[in-house]
Amino acid sequence: MPKVSLKGQQMPESPIRKLVPFSEAAKQKGVKVYHLNIGQPDIKTPHAALEAVKDNIPEILEYSHSAGFDSYREKLAAYYQKSNVQVNKADIIITTGGSEALLFALGSTMDAGDEIIIPEPFYANYNGFSVASGVKVVPVISTIEEGFALPPVADFEKLITAKTKAILICNPGNPTGYLYTEEEIQQLAELVKKHDLFLIADEVYREFTYDGDQHYSVMNVPGIEEHAIMIDSVSKRYSMCGARIGCIVSKNKAVMAAAMKFAQARLSPPTLAQIASEAALDTPQDYFDEVIKEYKDRRDTLVAGLTEIEGVKVATPKGAFYCIAKLPVDDADKFAQWLLESFELEGETVMVAPAAGFYSSPNVGMDEIRIAYVLNKEDLKRSITILKEALKQYNS
């Protein structure tokens, strides 16, 4: 019998989606499941984006340019310039989601066996993208005790070898919600200059910051133009996860030329979704003001509720819409499955994402979960009540 590839065997399961069969079984039994496990916003997609598709359906659904619509890239560059990210359309390639942008970034900067340093916990699919690219993830651990702040630069430096090609960060972070300070970004900038590395920043949550804190992009740092690569997406910004439109952005012409060859190999990004994404750029600021106020209220509701549960520790997120909570359990994976298989409170339960899948270090984060606060405040309060009772029963 033919065997699947070693790469196929090594591809990790999604910690976010692997419990779906248990969730489906619970629903079939009539149990209501509150989904805290996945970052699918319940915020409405901007009306203008949907109307643009309706009003511009072509007679022939053609390929677009491999780099994406010229008009979209020009408009996107202007959008970034408002945040002092001084790029033009030649520095942008539109991709099929931020996921493809990350694959292009890895493919354009690394060869099989090369190494990439990533602060963990990190977005679980970084593991999968690295396996697919034949790249080795070298983790540097951030801790809940430090609020998941950037580990000391010395911790990064001692991991750098001849095979190290890049450092990858998510800012603000998924799954931690941590927002890197300007000083932390500057520290990384100095490090990549010193060791001639790339600094890849996944900035898909760049708009979602709270408490007056500002996002500071790697593209804002003077002197690392040849090192910096930004990954972005419309998925979370406009609540358009299904559009699958992202981009890779860099001033490094050699990187962009290589990324363009990957873009040509997959032909083009989705046409209708680009129409929607281009129109979404006209979304007024008051849309974001309302969304950010809503997420801040949800964050405060969640953190306050979790803090009141005995034995639970949580770091307050500064951005995005996720947090990591440390639970009084030995194995969050087993607990998450038990929540769906064996527990209900008045016909309801919650689905969470075990956090071990957001680490590449073995046996780390075993007692942690990631929570996405994408539910309304009343549902979050109910979810906290359910989680509190579940922990009480599980530990008895």
Rank of each mutant, 00 (worst) to 15 (best):
G98R: 09
P12G: 14
G30I: 08
G68I: 08
T109E: 03
Y80A: 02
I93C: 08
L150T: 03
G30L: 11
G97V: 00
P119N: 07
E100T: 08
L76M: 12
M110C: 10
S133Q: 06
S83A: 15
E59W: 09
S23K: 14
N56I: 07
S64E: 13
E59Q: 15
H47Q: 13
F22V: 04
A67P: 00
P41Q: 10
I144Y: 00
A25R: 13
F122W: 01
V138G: 04
D114I: 01
F129R: 05
K18N: 13
V20N: 11
G128P: 02
E146G: 06
S14I: 09
Y80N: 02
K32V: 05
S99F: 01
Q86D: 14
G147L: 01
Y123K: 08
D55F: 13
I38Q: 09
N127S: 13
K7P: 00
P58W: 12
S133M: 05
T45Q: 04
E59D: 15
E51M: 11
F22S: 15
G98Y: 07
P119Y: 01
R17S: 14
A48F: 08
I144L: 14
G107Q: 05
I60C: 05
V135T: 09
Q81T: 12
S5V: 03
Y34R: 03
I116L: 10
S71I: 05
E146K: 12
D111T: 03
T95K: 07
P46H: 06
E74S: 14
G30T: 14
S130L: 07
V53K: 11
N127T: 02
D70W: 02
I57V: 15
A78K: 15
G147F: 02
T109Q: 06
A49P: 13
A25F: 04
V85Q: 10
E51S: 09
F122H: 09
I92A: 06
E145A: 14
E74K: 15
E120I: 04
L103Y: 00
L36W: 08
V31R: 02
S130I: 04
F122E: 05
K18D: 10
P151L: 07
N37D: 15
K32M: 06
K18Q: 15
V140L: 07
L36M: 11
V87D: 01
R73D: 04
E100V: 08
Y34A: 03
S23H: 02
K44P: 10
Q9K: 15
K32T: 12
G39D: 11
A26F: 03
T45S: 13
G68F: 00
E120C: 05
N56F: 06
S66A: 13
T45P: 06
G107P: 00
I116D: 02
I117M: 03
E24L: 15
F104V: 01
K44V: 05
G107W: 01
T143Y: 06
P46K: 03
K89P: 00
V140D: 04
G39F: 01
G30C: 11
E74A: 13
E146H: 07
I116T: 10
T109C: 07
G107S: 13
S133V: 00
K32G: 01
E62W: 03
I57Y: 07
T95R: 09
S14D: 12
T109Y: 00
S133I: 00
S14R: 10
Q28N: 14
V4D: 07
L103S: 07
G30N: 09
